[in-house]
Amino acid sequence: MSELLWTYVGIPLLKILVILLALVLLAAYLSWFERKLLAYMQIRLGPNRVGPRGWLQPIADALKLFVKEDLTPGFGEKFVFLLGPVLIIVPALLVFSVIPFGPSPNLFITDVNIGVLFVLAVSSIGVYGIILGGWASNNKFSLMGGLRSAAQLISYEVPMGFSVVTVLVMAESLSLVRIVEAQREAGVWFIFPGFVAFFIYFVCGIAETNRNPFDLPEAESELVAGYHTEYSGMKFAFYFLAEYANMVVVSSMATVMFLGGWLRPFPNVAALNFLDVVPPLGWFLLKVAFFLFVYIWFRGTFPRYRFDQLMGLGWKVLLPVSLVNLLVVAYFVALPRGQV
């Protein structure tokens, strides 16, 4: 009985706790990483006062946010205002329950056989947090930010979905673990046959996470701070954390679907066996780190699109291209099997 309890309650809870803690810490340190990297690109030094080389900066930030006064706008909708941060942080963290960090079952919480659908479904809930938070703030700028974000997320969800379907066609499974295994069996990462899908997925991913050059909802120069203008203290911290967590989600999904998850490059070429010194988890984290670096690199380089241009890009370019790409990939997958 106690063994059962341990297997079905204890271990999962432990795993959840570890991943949750690691994730929150990662998201916090991602902000440090971003500030530091951005600073280096901008020929300055970035945070370097709190702790050695600024290592304790995220902790100091968190402490500051904890002790800050928690303001609620006077004429705002109080309950919805409270609901906003909850609705955005929960899905962002929930997604990690299905992301496989490595091959061993200890390295993921669960392997759902509809993993991809789960990720897409749960991460779309986050938009409620943004739109409700923006609306409940009773601030015109927040409202505009929230509306922009809603429109943006909905329109980019579609091409993103189609590019994910491309992967599903190649892997013939919805389970994230199976997708990685399929890449091992194919001997090649899906980025090579599906580079168009990968490109679309990543562009949509940036748009989904509201990052530069698609960071319109929080466009500082237009909308002050967008949907979280009125938020302060820990509520703001949740929005902040969710943004970084979402970045990690998109990067992890891109890693799993296109860069072979925990696999080393060319997993079937024996000559490259020496690469196995890096454990699977290491490979996974390396790839995620690469994506995060690209995220920040983009932020350091590009101006921001305008709202209508962003929608135009989503509907007029990415959607048709992803559809055509899906057809082409499906054709070539079906061709060798004589199914065409």
Partner: peptide, 11 residues
């Protein structure tokens, strides 16, 4: 921007 990443910092 990548080039400036490794440039001497001005701070």
């Amino acid at each position: 921007t990548g080039k400036h990443l490794f440039a001497r910092k001005a701070t």
